[in-house]
């Protein structure tokens, strides 16, 4: 590797791409942060909303050839449905049990659905590969030495709009008010007239919508759907949330961008094959010195 001017241009270029990829990680982490913040459980099945959102996108845009906004909506709706299913079978019936019990249930949901998805995927696409449609693959803007991929711009814009919508809901709507009360404590919220179960279901739906959207965007940027996307999303989303500070939404956003940036920079500087290992190792070191995460204020004694 030569440290000439191209080195620095590429370094910055990689950083820009990383931050854009990170916006998708942020979307995944928000789902984890919402559920953790409100329920204090790790929803390990959240990654599956990403995987199913991705496949809903592949089916609607690839097989059915629906226009992009409509197939994006399909992915979001699928994410919401998967999240509702998780709430229905992994949280609601066992919510009074120890907090580890719903977590184990979500782990079961994750493994089961991933196996199913994987079987279907290899059955259907082993011979006839179906790429994830992305009409903007070749569209690029150049600013001097830098190249901006148009699909990254779309991805980031979608992420920004979704996050803005989330903030609007949390701070300006009745539902947001209820969410904030539930986050402060289920029993006080109950006492102040909040229907806690309904509010939690809405939280699952919001998380699912973010997961489905992230799945669509990931498939679209990578140009393919991946049956293991759920595991990837769970690992990276969870890591992002912890990096940002468990349960913190601004933390999830910043954590996502930091993770995307670190990942691509380490791929560029060291090795593509080890990019995850290097990125996670560096961020692990960061957590050693700041265990509460970037935006966390206190570490609670849960798990």
């Amino acid at each position: 590797m030569q440290f000439d001017e191209f080195f620095f241009i590429d370094l910055i270029q990689t950083g820009i791409d990383g931050a854009m990829l990170g916006s998708v990680y942020a979307l995944m982490a928000i789902g984890f942060a919402l559920i953790w913040g409100l329920l204090g459980i790790l929803n390990l099945a959240h990654g599956q909303t990403v995987a199913f959102g991705m496949f809903a996108g592949l089916v609607s845009a690839g097989h059915l050839k629906l226009p992009i906004p409509i197939s994006f909506a399909c992915a979001v709706v699928t994410g919401v449905l998967v999240a509702l299913l998780v709430e229905r079978i992994c949280y609601r019936p066992i919510r009074r049990a120890h907090e580890l019990v719903p977590m184990i249930a979500t782990l079961g949901f994750w493994i089961t659905t991933e196996e199913i998805l994987q079987k279907i995927y290899f059955h259907m696409y082993f011979k006839d590969f179906m790429p994830f449609p992305n009409p903007f693959t070749m569209t690029r803007f150049t600013f001097g030495e830098f190249v901006i991929r148009f699909d990254y711009v779309v991805t980031m814009s979608v992420a920004v709009v979704l996050v803005a919508a989330l903030y609007f809901v949390i701070y300006r709507s009745r539902l947001g008010m209820a969410l904030r009360m539930v986050a402060a404590g289920h029993d006080i919220a109950h006492l102040m007239g909040v229907n806690v179960l309904k509010t939690l279901r809405s939280a699952f739906m919001i998380a699912g919508a973010f997961g489905g959207a992230a799945g669509y965007l990931l498939g679209y940027v990578a140009n393919m759907a991946n049956p293991y996307a759920g595991s990837m999303a769970t690992v990276k989303g969870l890591f992002t949330m912890i990096l940002g500070g468990a349960g913190s939404i601004p933390g999830a956003i910043v954590g996502g961008i930091v993770l995307g940036f670190t990942e691509l920079e380490s791929a560029y500087l060291f090795s593509f094959a080890y990019r995850d290992a290097i990125a996670m190792g560096l961020l692990f070191l960061l957590l050693v010195f700041r265990p509460q995460g970037l935006f966390g204020t206190r570490v609670e004694d849960k798990i």
Binding site: V169, S173, R174, L175, M177, A178, R180, M181, A184, G185, I188, M192, G193, V194, N195, K198, S202
Partner: peptide, 26 residues
Amino acid sequence: FREMTVWENVWLGQNCQAKYLNPLFW
């Protein structure tokens, strides 16, 4: 609600009487 302001504490209490329906907007 320890992390919220005094105003917000009372404001949230104020709003419990309204119906839960129409959750997205006022």
